[in-house]
Design a protein around this nucleic acid. Structure first.
Length: 575
RNA sequence: CGGGGUGUGGCGCAGUUGGUAGCGCACCUGUUUUGGGAACAGGGGGUCGGAGGUUCGAGCCCUCUCACCCCGACCA
């Protein structure tokens, strides 16, 4: 590629809306440009990197036996109504009507479409197992898109779906994809971790997330210091009941005036208690019903866990309006005499007397005991308490025979694998005929990778003060030949000669033959993240050399300008 | 959706008590430069997000609207 006729859209300054390193660098390097909130153009260099990731994914998918298809971006409502998700999927699903007033949506994921596809085409057990994938745009109308293409509304995803005759074989397919994912992220040169996760909106029983470790990650991962357990905070189990040091002489419940103190910290300070002796009462709306949850003051509620425990689809904190209607005093809510179902986290159990809101403006109760509260039973068991909080640093690892301690790290979720079971094949009534002549539901799995997010994660993980340090496999070009003489002269001729030589041998190479000064070319090459520079100018010509600069090591070598063969060998050594 | 903020040339910004819009970078032309984002000279590009209003006069004041950004269970 001749950069003189290419589009190198580098910027000295980053736009003010770019927050993270990767977002700023991708914009400055001329890889992406925003055209609406969460919607981006990929410019030439950005697209080259994007394609490299895509190709690695495609190669590994094919190698694992998955078959590529392409499903539509626009999908009809009836498929979603069939699975029941038309009503369950919230505002993230962008819906619209066509000219004949028929309902459609932009596909945020493709379980419905693929289940329908396979159901029509693979009616026999002889067609299974089958893993189908596509690399295709998705649209999710996120509440808050951010960090450039890291969390965009329109984004490209590789999504694969496996179909098996039974659970055992479905697990085999799952493992197969899991291993393919390892190969993919290894080849992309990422430092990552596969962690246990929640299967979220997609449903199912078992799943892993692939997390790229980075400080700017939006997820929190807890990993054990002595075994290989790692999980997303949302799901990391923490159902141990830790005894607390506490005096046994219980005093009776007292109301205390706490003027304008609505936060745990304020109340704790005022009452002279530690925040783990305060219990906060969170009021939520769960499928239209109000419920309360008791969480220790120093803990956070995991909506994911609560959702699972309650078995509801819709769960969110009750709005002020709803609270007012229910006569609940915001900021001073408590479990005593509260007339809605109450659930409690395990950590409340050992508390002998604690402080809570008094359901009365500017008052809290102290010396509250859970024994006197009407805590809900869950399911058929009398499980008064359940695991509802997020795990924190220092929690004990709950893997069997492990006494390790959990520590947290931030991560960027670049891939997610789920075992779906028969959730969709049942709801959509998708069946195949088995060997015994009976109709059965497919056992499914689904597997996603955010392509743009992998690119952003790679930038986030590989950069320095000069710009992006792309791993060889992802760099937009692996080599750039730079003529440091902006005029048409001997240096440019030599540069072209070397460029042609390497290009003809099939190297991924560009020549910077723009009429720019040397500094500009060096800066651009480094910002964009090209690993190897071959520099030719009047100075080096006079010395009879070509300079070779390695972006990653910073090493500069002088190579014989007439021995292209040796230059090539040097490159091969490093590639 | 709630709260906050910002919209001025491609990007980053300034713009006084309301008086007819400016700077840096980028871009174009020329000359001089020529190894780490060159210098000088000249030049082009703006209905100041949009609509309405107040005023002799609005980038600035008022109303509405749109877009973008930030924060948001943890206060229950």
């Amino acid at each position: 590629m001749k950069l003189s006729s290419y589009l190198i859209a580098t910027l000295k300054e980053a736009p003010s809306d770019a927050e993270t390193n990767s977002h700023q660098l991708m914009v400055r390097a001329g890889m992406i440009r925003k055209i609406a909130a969460g919607v981006y153009n990929f410019l030439p260099t950005g697209l080259r990197v994007f394609r490299k990731v895509e190709n690695i994914i495609r190669e590994e998918m094919n190698r694992a036996g998955a078959i590529e298809v392409m499903m539509p971006f626009v999908t009809p409502a009836d498929l979603w109504q069939k699975s029941g998700r038309w009503d369950v999927y919230g505002k993230e699903l962008l819906r619209f009507k066509d000219r004949a007033d028929r309902d459609f949506c932009l596909g945020p994921t493709h379980e419905e479409v693929v289940t329908d596809l396979v159901e029509r085409e693979a009616k026999s057990y002889k067609n299974l197992p089958l893993t189908i994938y596509q690399i295709q745009p998705k649209f999710r109308d996120e509440i808050r898109p951010r960090y450039g293409v890291m969390r965009a509304r329109e984004f490209t995803m590789k999504d694969a779906y496996s179909f098996d005759v039974n659970e055992e074989l479905a697990e085999k397919s799952y493992l197969n994809m899991f291993n393919a994912y390892r190969n993919i992220f290894d080849r992309c040169g990422l430092t990552y971790k596969a962690v246990q996760a929640d299967s979220g909106n997609i449903g199912g029983s078992f799943s892993h997330e692939f997390m790229v470790l980075a400080e700017t990650g939006e997820d929190l991962v807890l990993s054990c210091d002595s075994c290989d357990f790692a999980a997303n905070v949302e799901t990391a189990p923490c159902n141990q009941v830790e005894p607390l040091e506490q005096s046994e002489n219980l005093e009776s419940l007292v109301e205390v005036e706490t003027p304008n103190m609505t936060s745990v910290d304020e109340v704790a300070k005022f009452l002279g208690l530690k925040s783990d002796r305060i219990v906060k009462t969170l009021v939520l709306e769960a499928d239209g019903q109000l419920i309360a949850v008791l969480i220790r003051g120093d803990h956070e509620l995991s909506l994911t866990k609560l959702k699972k425990v309650l078995g509801v689809n819709f769960l969110e904190l009750a709005s002020e309006k709803v609270l007012k209607e229910a006569n609940i005093v915001k900021g001073f809510c408590g479990p005593v005499d509260l007339n809605i179902p109450i659930y409690a986290d395990y950590s409340i159990k050992p508390l002998k007397g604690f402080a809570t809101g008094a359901n009365k403006l500017n008052f809290h109760n102290i010396n509250v005991c859970w024994e006197s509260l009407n805590i809900q039973e869950i399911g058929s068991e009398k499980a008064m308490f359940s695991d509802l909080r997020e795990a924190v640093d220092g929690d004990r690892c709950l893997s069997s025979d492990c006494s390790g301690i959990l520590t947290s790290t931030r991560g960027i979720e670049v891939g997610h694998v789920f075992k779906l079971g028969t959730k969709y094949s049942e709801s959509m009534n998708a069946t195949f005929t088995d060997q015994d002549g009976k109709e059965k539901n497919y056992f499914m799995g689904c597997y996603g990778i955010g392509v743009g997010r992998v690119v952003a994660a790679a930038v986030e993980q590989n950069n320095d003060e000069n710009g992006i340090r792309f791993p060889l496999a992802l760099a937009p070009f692996q080599i750039v030949v730079i003529s440091t003489d902006k005029k048409e002269g001997e240096a440019l001729l030599k540069a072209r000669e070397l460029y042609d030589y390497l290009l003809n041998l099939g190297y991924d190479i560009a020549i910077d033959d723009r009429a720019e000064s040397p500094g500009v070319k060096f800066k651009d090459a480094e910002l964009i993240g090209i690993p190897f520079q071959l520099r030719i100018g009047p100075k080096s010509l006079a010395k009879g050399v070509i300079e070779f600069k390695d972006r990653l090591s910073g090493e500069v070598l002088e190579l014989d300008q007439n021995n292209f063969e040796a230059i090539r060998e040097k490159i091969d050594e490093l590639l």
